[in-house]
């Protein structure tokens, strides 16, 4: 990685959460590489990817942490939530169990992030219409009830993937603009204009958080 200061308008930290096999890593890959990974192995750990996007003429660097979905890692992966500006909560529209677990994921997301973290609900695998197990309307109602933004996406075809990531950024940016997100507060997951070193890894103290909080 080349040395020297990077200068974006902002850096946003995202986390992707949800049951095993719902396609979290594929969504990340589709978003950063515009490609579908057919044989994506289970994530045993926490993946990391970046992409620069533009919101209202501002260049924003997204740092995306893609967490392992297996239940047994839950205790460990919880620590990566801290300091996330956006949380993408993913279920698989063809597997109802992954949808049923959403409330548990949502509880974690609400408890472990700050109140301004934008939580975005994604129903993945929308291309598999024939195997659909969760109706759009039902998930939409769930999202409305809990104040989440919702989209069905396909990491395979790429449908709506951009929108989910970008819409989340727009909401975060809006929160900054209207002042509801206090950039001086701890763990906002937003790093405003300043010299930034590339991030160090995740759990206890990712570099980007330290720098904006200290």
């Amino acid at each position: 990685m080349s040395a020297g200061p990077y200068n974006y308008s902002y850096i946003f930290k995202y986390i992707i959460i949800g049951d095993m096999g719902v396609g979290k890593s594929c969504l990340l890959h589709q978003f950063t590489e515009k490609k579908f990974m057919a044989d994506c192995p289970h994530t045993i750990g926490v993946e990391f990817g970046t992409r620069i996007i533009e919101v209202s003429g501002q260049k924003i660097k997204l740092q995306i942490w893609d967490t392992a979905g297996q239940e047994r890692f839950r205790a460990v992966t919880r620590s990566y939530y801290r300091g996330a500006a956006g949380a993408l909560m993913v279920y698989d529209v063809t597997r109802r169990s992954t949808y049923n677990h959403l409330s548990s994921w949502l509880t974690d997301a609400r408890n472990l992030t700050n109140p301004n973290t934008v939580i975005f609900l994604i129903g993945n695998k929308s291309d598999l219409e024939a195997q659909r197990d969760v109706p759009y309307e039902e998930a939409k109602a769930f999202a409305d009830e809990n104040g989440l933004t919702f989209l069905e996406c396909s990491a395979k075809t790429g449908e709506n993937v951009e929108d989910a990531f970008l819409e989340t950024a727009r909401k975060i940016y809006q929160n900054i603009q209207d002042g509801s997100l206090d950039l001086n507060a701890a763990d906002t997951g937003v790093q405003p204009k300043q010299v930034v070193r590339p991030t160090t890894g995740g759990s206890a103290a990712p570099g980007e958080r330290k720098e904006c909080n200290c």
Partner: peptide, 11 residues
């Protein structure tokens, strides 16, 4: 937790 500096974590 095995951390790769400036990158992902492996469990």
């Amino acid at each position: 937790v095995m951390r790769l500096e400036k990158g992902r974590d492996h469990f």
